[in-house]
Design a protein around this nucleic acid. Sequence first.
DNA 1: CGCGGTAGTTTCCAAAAGGTAAGTTATAAA
DNA 2: TTTATAACTTACCTTTTGGAAACTACCGCG
Lengths: 123, 123
Amino acid sequence: MKKGVHDYAAYVTLNIIGGKWSMLILCHLRKGAVRFCEFPKLIPGLTQKMLTKHLRELENNGLVRRAVYPEIPPKVEYTLTSHGKSLIPVLDLLEQWGKEHLKMSAAHSDANLHILSQPKDCQ
Amino acid sequence: MKKGVHDYAAYVTLNIIGGKWSMLILCHLRKGAVRFCEFPKLIPGLTQKMLTKHLRELENNGLVRRAVYPEIPPKVEYTLTSHGKSLIPVLDLLEQWGKEHLKMSAAHSDANLHILSQPKDCQ
DNA sequence: CGCGGTAGTTTCCAAAAGGTAAGTTATAAA
DNA sequence: TTTATAACTTACCTTTTGGAAACTACCGCG
């Protein structure tokens, strides 16, 4: 999913949080600052390359703030900006719908086996 | 974005509406039934192949219903299921946040040029 | 001098997603 | 007989995305 000047602002939102890891990163930032090296521990499978890439994107979109502490060894912390925090309700709703959907599809795959006798589709 | 067994149900939602065209297709279905051949007219750039692919996905996820009318030339209509309709508030929120974001980033790129004298970031 | 720790960047490769264009089927109308 | 139409499917190719692993820089420590 990328580009394309469609009339829907929802498209913009998906371009921002639709990457493979962005949403996961944001979810962990909800609770407060996270160090660079903490992310891969929090998010299994996330590599440094993908982490930097998505963090830069989120930073460029004004959702996260990058704070560098001039220490050795280096320390960099990421936090949500206020704009980033405005995404939390959106994430919550996505979360909530996802849960409903999982319940639904579980129920449905059970049901298929013994209940259904209604017409499934007009055809 | 695909796969990955993370703890966030929001991930599930994004897998469903996160494709390049799914959200656009759903948006047009909000108003009612749409024929196959109407989609490419409604959504510039959408090809038949991508359309079928995403429609099948949405169908498999129980969000849209496919109704075939046995006529020549063929007629196939797609509608939202009730489960599909439950996504509308989600799409609306994505839309709303996207609009806010566009306002924000427009304001920000203006502001950058003359206003800012605050520290941008601790570094 | 070499090691460890943090925060990256870079290179190289594989997989997934997406696009183009042509083919398919069925029938009715010209 | 050819054409047109709707709804697909298929083959082939390009682009995008993602991942593994190595490399850089910095400095203190032993």
